[in-house]
């Protein structure tokens, strides 16, 4: 039997029907049409499906879709303000911190969570916080530079 879920995604109230076994990732991609959140493993080991639930960074593949009831979900589609990119997004582009781009949505969502929690991370703190976001293309160098530069810029703007 399908479950009816009412939730808030990127500030907008959304309703969907899902099977109770489906994950939040399934629901976002297949029932809400938000395919920016990617599936790399389905087991919490790659971070491509990172979203926030009530502000907490999680893998959406490890959340049951019915758990979204009454919660506030943040996805990659909610990071930019319409056509105005978030500083983190701009820095990822400036630093060429993506090659294929499949890990990028998850990394940007995670980076935003990192900088909200710790606006001034050291390189080591950034690397450990983002250890759950696998990237196979870049060797992480440019990602970490983008993250640290975004932190600097956001501090300057604050």
């Amino acid at each position: 039997m399908k479950t009816h879920v009412t939730t808030t995604i990127n500030g907008e109230e959304v309703e969907f029907l899902c099977e109770p076994h489906e994950t939040l990732l399934d629901a976002l991609r297949n029932h809400v049409g938000l395919t920016g959140t990617k599936e790399g493993c389905g087991s919490g080991d790659c971070g491509a499906c990172s979203v926030t639930v009530d502000g907490e960074l999680v893998c959406s593949c490890l959340v049951l879709a019915p758990e979204a009831e009454g919660k506030s979900i943040g996805t990659i589609e909610g990071i930019a303000d319409h056509d105005k990119l978030h500083v983190i997004q701009e820095k990822f582009l400036e630093h060429a911190a993506l090659q294929c781009g499949i890990c990028t949505p998850g990394l940007i969502v995670s980076t935003k969570a990192l900088l909200e929690e710790n606006p001034n991370p050291t390189e080591e703190e950034a690397r450990y916080y983002l250890a759950g976001n696998l990237c196979r293309c870049t060797g992480y160098d440019k990602i970490i530079r983008a993250v640290l530069d975004a932190a600097e810029t956001m501090k300057g703007a604050a």
Binding site: G44, G47, V58, S110, A131, G132
Partner: peptide, 9 residues
């Protein structure tokens, strides 16, 4: 226990 994301849960 796991990544930052996993610790969120």
């Amino acid at each position: 226990i796991g990544s930052t994301q996993v610790q969120g849960r």
